[in-house]
Design a protein around this nucleic acid. Structure first.
Length: 415
RNA sequence: CGGGCCGGAGUAUGCCGGUAGUACGCCUGCUUUGGGAGCAGGUAGACCGAGUUCAAUUCUCGGCGGCCCGACCA
């Protein structure tokens, strides 16, 4: 797209009310807008990146037979009362509201209850299992303290997958498939090397769960890493001797690190299926509760984590797979007919070649364009100026490394 | 939820019990044009309420909002 049509503007100064690097840079570059504490809007560039991340997650979920749905935000208290999670003393992050008639409703903070109730209409026999259902949906959590920019918001998008299996053995098999899919996702978005499968407490559902923790000083969690096994454990189970027996990790050889929880996988067992009456008939006609799991990734938090890990002193630096555009075409001299003609032609050639290109066609000075281009963090910049007109070769600068190459028009269109 | 700091042009900030200053942005003009240009002119501002005072943006109290530390984070 043409940058002259982009409504967002960049800023020189970070906002005074943000300390987190991810929020400072994303606001400065015009990717997001802060609505209030812990509540952010995604602007055109930010939405492109968010959608790239969502696209990658969706592909991986589909690859393990996930079926996508979109459940409602408004929650019926009845089903939450059945699971015992309507009470504010049990779940302290509820946002609740009321209908005109005075009846209470909730804004969903997770969807185990809703989906379990829904699935009871579709699961009746062992022949109906397994089922894997996921969505990308807004979650509302009334956090006592929003912090860390877009990494801990009160309203945020979450990919939540729920598995419905006939028993613990088939559940475990799928659980490992999800783990594999998660590893693909973190690898594809560019943070695989710093992300560890992490042993954590299971909360109220099971004894243990797994988190995916990305090592980063801006993280809120503390983990202990076994670098040879490429495993970690959360501080919350650090003193649990059983964990070392189960994982084979040696407490003495672990290294402590701050990390961002970018995903988690939980075994739920029959906690919700029993509470909400989700059972199936086995081969012998006996009624058996469905064995469940839940698996979350916050695409917004993941986006924040990528920024925290990749940004440099000049601004954002997107990995190719999640960049809003793959090429930033920067024209120097919109008042020069030859340059403008050459840049316009290259722009339409790139668009026709199917390349995602942001074309800076504005009449601004070179310095300003370069600084802004660095801030936006698009992986490659192609410069069209006097030199290109004189030599016929275009300069390409890699954002991450600063490496400069010369390429002909034909070479640009084929790669 | 406990503790601390903060609230002023679109953004970021300095000073201040009496005229609210600066930089960037934005508008006009001229010059400039490969790393956030220069000159000239212009535009635009005190969170809400109460109190103290001759006078409050400034001091006090309350509210609302923001940030930080901690607690919390199915």
């Amino acid at each position: 797209m043409r940058q002259s049509k982009l409504f967002t503007k960049t800023r020189r100064e970070p906002p005074a009310d943000e300390v987190a690097k991810n929020a400072q840079l994303l606001v400065r570059a015009g990717y997001i807008h802060k609505e209030m504490a812990g509540v952010y809007d995604f602007l055109p560039l930010g939405l492109r990146t968010l959608n790239k991340i969502i696209g990658i997650i969706r592909e991986e979920m589909n690859a393990i037979d996930g079926e996508e749905v979109f459940l409602s935000t408004l929650q019926d208290p009845k089903i939450w009362e059945k699971s015992g999670r309507w009470d504010d003393d049990v779940v302290d992050v509820w946002f609740k509201t009321r209908l005109k008639n005075g009846n209470e409703l909730g804004l969903g903070n997770t969807h185990e209850e809703a989906l379990t109730a829904l699935m009871s209409e579709h699961i009746a026999s062992y022949k109906d299992l397994p089922r894997y259902v996921y969505q990308f949906q807004n979650k509302f959590r009334n956090e006592t303290r929003a912090k860390s920019g877009i990494m801990r918001a009160r309203e945020f998008i979450m990919k939540d997958l729920y598995s419905f299996s006939k028993d613990s053995a088939s559940h475990n098999e799928f659980y490992e498939k999800v783990a594999g899919a998660y590893e693909n996702i973190f690898e594809r978005v560019g943070i695989g090397a710093k992300t560890y499968r992490t042993f954590a407490s299971g909360g109220s559902f099971s004894k243990y769960s797994h988190e995916y923790q990305t090592v980063c000083t801006a993280g809120e969690d503390t983990i202990y890493i076994d670098s040879t096994k490429r495993l970690a454990l959360n501080k919350e189970v650090y003193d649990d001797t059983e964990v070392y027996a189960v994982t084979g990790m040696d407490k003495e050889s672990l290294t402590e690190a701050k990390a961002i929880e970018v995903g988690n996988i939980f075994t739920l067992g029959t906690r919700f299926s029993e509470a909400l009456g989700l059972s199936y008939k086995d081969v012998e006609g006996r009624s058996v509760p469905v064995f469940m799991g839940s698996y979350g990734i916050g695409p917004g938090r993941l986006m924040g984590a990528i920024v925290e890990l990749t940004a440099d002193e000049k601004g954002l630096v997107w990995p190719e797979a999640v960049a809003p555009f793959s090429v930033h075409l920067v024209s120097l001299g919109q008042t020069d007919d030859e340059i403008k003609k050459m840049a316009d032609a290259l722009y339409s050639d790139l668009v026709n070649a199917g390349i995602d290109v942001l074309y800076d066609d504005r009449d601004l000075r070179a310095g300003e364009k370069f600084v802004e281009s660095d801030l936006l963090g698009i992986p490659r910049r192609i410069v069209v100026g006097k030199n290109a007109v004189a030599t016929g070769a275009f300069e390409i600068i890699e954002r991450a490394t600063g490496a400069v190459m010369k390429r002909s028009r034909a070479e640009l269109l084929t790669k």
